[in-house]
Design a protein around this nucleic acid. Structure first.
Ligand SMILES: [Zn+2]
Ligand SMILES: [Zn+2]
Length: 732
DNA sequence: AGCACGCCGACT
DNA sequence: GTCGGCGTGCTC
């Protein structure tokens, strides 16, 4: 038999291997299993994706033999394989690398993998128990095990320690086996649901509409924070579980907290597993394996959980659909939301996307009736909407980025015993360090970028390559010793707030302040216990975390987002503003959001604040259409980088000339001139790109195929690294 | 991406 | 002589 393997190598094809008779196992489906093979002259692991009786490879060189089949059963089922093959072709990424990224780390190693054994203790029926008749603890333990076989974990919960178990085992009264040898599927006939809430009219309507659907359907639940989206998810999952089906819940990285998971644990008695960054390789593999074995019923995970093997998948939930963490930024670049919709289509099941601020792509899909939108307008309890205020910075006394007006409002809220949240999109003390005499800006020696001054660390840090430099005493150009920090960062705002409000308790939250695990949770607990009353941080605070005592949110600088050259910047700003409003003011307390800007009349602000996100999104969509931007057109980007600037330029121009020579064979193509990246030199590598745009996805896809088929022929290819990205984040 | 092969310069 | 520099080419 001949097998096609996907192998982790940057090549766009599968490789054929021969399976000898003695490796064939009767009744085992090989498709989706891993195989150990020689590839070139190294041994590696490949995934079997196709099989045939006859040899199909006709090129030169002999077909090699498979050395070992590494799995007893496929790690990927036919749906996984269909999704991954689709993703490889849609994103034009090497199929082996696509499969590799979808695998838990433990399965990437070229060796067999199994769940770590769990000891199961069973009573020996004809045992003579007289020898322990006087030992009370042993007798109690034996009675429990006599009832039903037990794991050490279960026995520990019942107060029986390992020493007693070992004693019983040594006496031959109980036997040991591995619980994992048998599959213990979750019990669909014994589902208990705890504390389900009564749905309000809108929630009930959403539930009814989704429940009534059959096969593939994409729904968008559009509801503000506190409108009860999660309750709908939970009840839809309950219905799915009762049908014996499993559920997949995707959440943004930052939202996958113990509290989120607890809501699911508290509701259901079925086994629930997670896949997220703080789990180790073994734990992730365990979650993956338990879903595959149908031992767990619900998987809650970040974007990569999308590729898990879930044999009885019945529903997909994707919370905060618009969130940027669904986009994978390096290696195989994919969008988990788009892939999840494809997965739901492949499996013919419903997918529910929840958000208060649907992405512009999603709004377009709603308008095109690809997705069904369900609106939740009611907030739970008597919570009222936050009040927005624009602070016109042009007529203000500004001190360290904080206007007089904002500081007065902060003072007022602090006086009432409320908390204040300030967002700055820059960490460190100052964005730059400038010579006060000649204006020299301290730059990174590896990148075309200025260094950020970090006061706590007492270093100049490059935010592009993380290199740290000792702070010089004088300007290298003129020798002047007075160096001025410019551009407020979180550290500087923190320092200024301490001076402005000497009696306040401010806390700073950014990547630098929470570098150790667990620190964030400690700070968040302290905030909820009112240990702090001013929270200063980067935009990581705007997502996921709830601050019930915060009544004022100030966004220090929104102008950089208003005047960014990235076409997605306005969308992101609008989402940030709305999300932030959801974080402030709960119950009786009125929440306020202050936006500091030099352009208070900007149409984005007036539309958003006067007419709401929905109208903003419609306006944004109209503008995208006028400007021929996604989702009305499609982008692909060819990125090139290398250590020698001239070689990268030769490569990118050769690629560009090739594209121009071929573009007439395609319609609707626009190829933009090669451009240097915003930061051209990053870690001593020079970055250039060509953007390709097309109204038709198909034309673009075929054109990209043609580029890939010729990419090795472009000048200097051997010393230039290149990637093609589909639906890139912006225009770089 | 890895990894080997191969062809030139410089070093014991 | 031969050690190693990295340009080139291949992976079923
Ligand atoms: Zn100077
Ligand atoms: Zn740098």
């Amino acid at each position: 038999m001949y097998l096609q393997l996907a192998i982790n190598t940057p090549l766009y094809r599968t490789f054929e291997y021969k399976l000898s008779f003695d490796l064939k196992i009767e009744g085992v489906n090989l498709i989706g299993c891993r195989a150990l093979v020689k590839f070139g002259n190294r041994k590696t692991v490949g995934i079997i994706v196709e099989q045939s009786e006859k040899q199909t490879y006709t090129g030169k060189g002999a077909v090699k033999e498979i050395e070992e089949i590494l799995d007893d059963s496929p790690i990927f089922d036919k749906y996984n394989i269909q999704l991954l093959k689709w993703a490889a072709s849609y994103y034009h990424y090497p199929i082996g690398e696509v499969f590799y990224t979808a695998m838990p780390l433990l399965l990437r190693k070229p060796e067999k993998a199994g769940l770590k054994p769990i000891d199961l203790w069973t009573f020996v029926s004809d045992a003579d128990t007289s020898c322990i008749s006087r030992a009370k603890a042993c007798k109690a333990a034996l009675n429990i095990i006599r009832e039903a076989p037990c794991t050490s974990h279960k026995l520990k919960e019942l107060g029986i320690n390992q020493a007693i178990i070992t004693k019983l085992f040594n006496l031959g009264l109980i036997t040991k086996s591995n619980l994992r040898d048998q599959v213990h599927e979750w019990d669909k006939n014994n589902i208990s649901i705890t504390d389900a809430k009564i749905l309000n009219d809108e929630q009930q309507h959403a539930y009814d509409v989704i429940s009534a659907s059959h096969g593939f359907n994409a729904f968008v639940i559009n509801g503000v924070t506190g409108s009860g989206k999660t309750e709908i998810y939970l009840q839809l999952i309950a219905k799915t579980l009762k049908q014996g089906k499993q559920a997949l819940v995707l959440v943004p990285e930052i939202n996958l907290t113990p509290q989120t998971v607890k809501r699911f644990y508290d509701r259901f008695n079925v086994p629930i597993v997670c896949i997220h960054s703080s789990l180790n390789d073994n734990e992730r593999f365990e979650s993956f394996a338990m879903m595959k074995r149908n031992e767990a019923a619900i998987l809650i995970g970040t974007r990569s959980a999308l590729f898990a093997n879930i044999p009885n998948l019945g529903i997909i939930i994707i919370d905060e659909e618009h969130d940027s963490s669904y986009r994978q930024g390096d290696g195989f670049r994919y969008h988990a939301r788009d892939c999840a919709v494809m997965l739901a289509f492949i499996r013919q099941i419903p997918i529910i996307m929840g958000t208060a601020t649907p992405s512009i792509e999603t709004v377009n899909n709603i308008q095109k009736k690809k997705y069904t939108e369900i609106i939740l307008s009611k907030r739970a309890g008597n919570a009222s909407d936050a009040i927005f205020n624009i602070i016109d910075m042009r007529r203000q006394i500004i001190n360290h980025g904080i206007s007089k007006e904002l500081s007065l409002h902060i003072n007022e809220e602090l006086g009432k015993g409320n908390q204040v949240l300030l967002l700055i999109n820059r960490r460190g003390y100052s964005q730059k360090l400038i010579c006060h005499n000649c204006g020299y800006v301290f730059m990174c020696k590896n990148c075309d970028s200025n260094l950020t001054y970090h006061m706590t660390e007492n270093r100049l840090v490059c935010h592009h390559c993380e290199t740290k430099f000792i702070i010089p005493h004088q300007c290298p150009e003129c020798g002047f010793t007075e160096l001025t920090p410019t551009g407020n960062g979180t550290e500087q705002i923190f320092e200024h707030i301490q001076q402005l409000f000497p009696n306040s308790n401010p806390v700073r939250i950014d990547r630098d302040a929470i570098n150790r695990k667990g620190v964030l949770n400690t700070i968040l607990d302290d905030i909820n216990n009112n240990k702090y009353n001013i929270i200063i941080g980067t935009q990581m605070l705007a997502k996921g975390h709830h601050f019930p005592n915060v009544t004022l949110v100030g966004i220090i600088d929104i102008d950089s987002c208003l005047f960014s050259n990235n076409y997605r910047a306005h969308e992101q700003l609008a989402q940030l503003i709305v999300q932030v409003a959801g974080r402030s003011g709960r119950g009786e307390k009125q929440g306020y959001v202050y936006l500091q800007t030099h352009t208070p009349d900007h149409p984005v602000l007036s539309t958003l604040l006067n007419y709401g996100y929905h109208t903003f999104a419609e306006e944004c969509l109209k503008k995208r259409k006028q400007m021929m931007l996604p989702p009305f057109t499609n982008y692909a980007i060819l990125k090139a980088d290398g250590t020698e600037r001239e070689k990268v330029i030769s490569f990118i121009y050769d690629a560009y000339n090739f594209m121009n020579s071929q573009s007439s064979k395609f319609s609707n193509l626009v190829i933009m001139k090669p451009t240097s990246a915003y930061i051209t030199r990053k870690q001593n590598r020079y970055h250039f790109y060509v953007l390709i745009n097309s109204r038709a996805k198909r034309d673009l896809s075929e054109f990209v195929d043609l580029i890939i088929a010729n990419i090795d022929r472009f000048q200097c290819k051997s010393s230039v690294h290149s990637v093609i990205e589909i639906d890139p984040l912006g225009n770089e």
